[in-house]
Design a protein around this nucleic acid. Structure first.
Length: 220
DNA sequence: GTCCTGCTCG
DNA sequence: CGAGCTGGAC
């Protein structure tokens, strides 16, 4: 597709999805810290299981960076429902140390840094890749970073907007350079993409007949 | 069996 | 690249 058309259609697609699905109220989480650990725990895991894990942390009274790190031995048991619990425990502890050592466990301090600096710091941590880093930046730190995930790749590659295996940052750039730079918009758009991916643009047997995605882009 | 708001390491 | 992550829920 011609580049100049993308800015026109990407916003149009958003509007159609929003009208179809309404606001998604992302990210569920009362504090930036809760959102951050949710971003790590939700890797290759459905949110329902992550929610249980976070509830366990809450019930234990450890939804606080320093308290959680102090009781790090309890982490594997607490987060077990989110799956890959040993691996994710290591990742969570590494993040906690980073977050406390550099920012005293305060999102507001972290947020004083430039977004590119924060992003590179997060990406340097073990177990935090592009999607997790950008989810934290957008949903916890409220920075205008468009999150790309498997749903985004599947939906838009099926509509020939880009190739499924195109590099992450290239795809992110397509969205960020063709949409208004708005945290609210990026937040809602990604959430709508996830909903569309789960309910219509499924991996197997997608429901194309009733899909609300604008068909004008199909097989151009 | 399949999917899930990935990432790492060989 | 592809397998594996002490995975869990449907």
């Amino acid at each position: 597709m011609v580049l100049s058309l993308k800015s026109k259609y990407l916003l149009k697609i958003y509007e159609v999805l929003y009208k179809s699905f309404g606001p998604q109220h992302w990210w569920p989480g009362d504090t930036p810290f809760e959102i951050m650990i949710g971003a790590i725990l939700t890797q290759n895991t459905n949110w329902q299981n992550v929610s249980k894990a976070i509830d366990n942390v809450k019930k234990a009274g450890l939804l606080d960076p320093k308290k959680l790190l102090k009781h790090q031995r309890m982490i594997p048991k607490l987060i077990r429902p989110s799956g890959f619990y040993k691996l994710k425990s290591r990742r969570l502890i590494a993040f906690l140390k980073y977050f406390i050592d550099n920012y005293n466990g305060e999102a507001s301090r972290m947020n004083k840094k430039r977004v590119t600096v924060m992003r590179n710091e997060l990406l340097s941590l073990p177990g935090i890749g592009y999607e997790t880093a950008d989810s934290i930046l957008l949903y916890a730190n409220l920075r205008p970073v468009f999150v790309i995930d498997a749903y985004t790749r599947r939906i838009f590659s099926r509509h020939r907007m880009f190739e499924y295996n195109q590099p992450y940052d290239e795809i992110r750039h397509i969205f960020e350079s063709n949409l208004p730079r708005s945290v609210k918009l990026y937040n809602e758009y990604h959430a709508l993409i996830v909903k569309l991916g789960k309910e219509y643009c499924k991996k197997n047997e997608p429901l194309c007949n009733t899909c609300p995605f604008p068909t004008i882009l199909l097989k151009s």
